[in-house]
Design a protein around this nucleic acid. Structure first.
Length: 277
DNA sequence: CTATGGATCAACT
DNA sequence: GTTGATCCATAGA
């Protein structure tokens, strides 16, 4: 039997409201400062003015507080692994911030990758961001309900899907944002459940289509900072991607990467974790 | 396990 | 312009 007939709607509900910022009331101050901030890396972590221009790599080591465009200009698989451990920061219109450490990513390689939205090298209005400068965000809506965040990498049509974060700061804000789609009577979410999925993290950070084609390297509302610790190759599990059963030979390619043992990984692969030789 | 929900795009008229 | 099949998921039972 065929699919049910659907009415056609040209805009997603709430689009206008969300443009003006948060659509839930946040409780200011609650929980802020009670959570552990990542240790600064070295002594150069001083605060910078928000739009501090980076004019020279030689005189602006300080500017590495925020990962800049050069960081994103790497091959897709390399970038997917380098993302692990970096801290995603979301600043809301009221000035408050939430932060989470990236613990799970997937690489989508572009034209030849049958699981990629850019398969066959096809560029459409939806996936245009995948073909833009490395560091460009590709946000798309899935199943009509949720959003997923990708970041363009080096390579035509290649991008990295951000699948899971370990919440570091602003957990109460995340919980409020995540509750919007949940029943009142639902059990309160554990910390590790706040961002353990590609659309969960978009809810928790209020990432919507308005960020599509935005630049993660220069934006004021969302950016990356160096993580508190280096993630070594030995701590990275490489395994198959999630939810791409249609992609033929690409189904089993090890293009999903996560930090071994991290509680916030969405789908754990015990077999892939068994390190042999 | 199932229900949910709407944009997207190829393939048509 | 319309149609049909699909889609990188989540929530709740």
């Amino acid at each position: 039997m065929g699919p049910k007939k659907r009415k056609v709607v040209t805009a997603w509900p709430g689009a206008r409201e969300r443009r003006s910022g948060l659509s839930v009331q946040l409780q200011p101050g609650v929980g802020q400062g009670a959570e552990l901030e990542p240790e600064p890396r070295g002594h150069l972590q001083q605060q910078l003015p928000e739009e501090a221009p980076v004019t020279s790599v030689y005189f602006n080591k300080v500017a590495h507080r925020r990962l800049s465009s050069g960081f994103f200009n790497r091959p897709c698989v390399t970038l997917a692994k380098e993302f692990l451990g970096q801290v995603m920061v979301r600043k809301f219109p009221d000035g408050s911030e939430v932060k989470g450490r990236i613990v799970e990513t997937e690489a989508y390689l572009g034209g030849e990758d049958q699981a990629s939205h850019s398969r066959g090298g096809k560029q459409t209005p939806r996936n245009t961001a995948m073909f833009m400068t490395p560091g460009t965000m590709y946000v798309y809506q899935i199943y009509g309900v949720y959003f997923c965040l990708n970041v363009s990498s080096q390579g035509d049509g290649a991008a990295v899907l951000v699948r899971s974060l370990e919440p570091l700061h602003g957990l109460d804000t995340m919980r409020q944002l995540r509750s919007k789609r949940r029943r009142e009577a639902g059990k309160p979410l554990k910390d590790h459940e706040l961002c353990n999925g590609p659309s969960k993290l978009c809810q928790a950070l209020d990432i919507t289509k308005i960020f599509d084609r935005g630049d993660l390297a220069t934006g004021n509302e969302i950016w990356l900072e160096p993580g508190p610790e280096e993630i070594s190759g030995a701590d990275i599990v490489s395994t198959s991607r999630i939810g791409i059963g249609y992609a033929g030979e690409w189904v089993n390619k090890p293009l999903r990467f996560y930090i071994k043992g991290n509680k916030c990984v969405s789908v754990v692969d015990r077999d892939a974790e068994k390190v042999k030789d």
